[in-house]
Computed example of a mutant assay.
Amino acid sequence: MNEELQDYLSHLIPETPGWAVELETQAKADHVPIMDCLSMQLVMQLIRLHQPRRILEVGTAIGYSALRMLEANPNASIVTIELDNARYQQAVQNIKKLKKDSQIKVIHGDALEIIPALATAGEVFDCIFIDAAKGQYQRFFEAADPMLASGGMLISDNVLFRGYVANPELENKRFKTVIQRLRAYNKQLFNHSAYTSTIIPIGDGVAISYKNNQEGVDQA
């Protein structure tokens, strides 16, 4: 998306709540990457439309996206996983400060260990949001897929990764492995028989995948 169009769309977004502005300022000061405003608005709109009761987030950071998803659907409950201890502590404090700790559970640890444990415990989610280590998206997806309900929604952020994924001529040697893995992940989503996917070229690229309703398929 060109800068002029992005600027135009950014100015159309309604005023951000004060608490969210504070978190955006905190993230910027601490150099913590959070979703850009347009991508966040897209995710929030998807949450409003889909109204998931239970959301699993892989990559909490400081709690910004979890809180904004809850803003979009105040009746949801969210389980979110963060590996970095400092960010985990920030997230817990931010969520508790806004009195949302009864609806947002933050788990500290490696998602590749925690997700299988949640699956073994029989957890089920209506929406899964992946926004963590880009080179591990396929592994996150494969571990979390059994927990996503039929008719559920999978959202993956940063799937175009600065434009490198879509344009081999721009490929950066420093991120070669990440770029290759994201390409493989995108291909997997689009070729997966249980999912119907699309990528919105907004922000750093947001993939939206619908888990096909198997009951509906069988009845047809």
Rank of each mutant, 00 (worst) to 15 (best):
E4A: 11
Q6G: 09
Y8P: 09
H11T: 08
L12N: 08
E15R: 13
A20W: 05
L23H: 01
D30E: 13
V32I: 09
P33K: 08
S39T: 14
S39W: 06
Q41D: 02
V43Q: 07
Q45T: 15
L49Y: 04
G59I: 06
T60W: 02
A61P: 00
L67E: 04
E71R: 12
A76Q: 02
I78H: 04
I78P: 00
I78R: 01
V79L: 08
E82P: 04
E82S: 03
R87T: 10
Y88I: 07
Y88D: 07
Q89A: 13
A91R: 04
N94Y: 01
I95G: 00
K96E: 11
K96W: 05
K97N: 03
S102Q: 14
I104S: 06
I104C: 04
I107M: 13
A117L: 09
A121Y: 04
V124Y: 09
D126N: 15
F129N: 02
D131Q: 09
D131H: 06
A132C: 01
M153G: 05
I155R: 07
I155E: 01
V159H: 00
V165D: 00
N172A: 04
K173V: 13
R174G: 05
K176P: 10
R181C: 06
Q188N: 07
S193T: 11
T196C: 11
S197H: 06
I199W: 05
P201F: 01
I202E: 02
G203A: 06
G205V: 00
V206C: 06
N212H: 09
N213A: 10
Q214G: 15
G216D: 06
G216P: 02
D218N: 11
D218C: 10
Q219F: 09
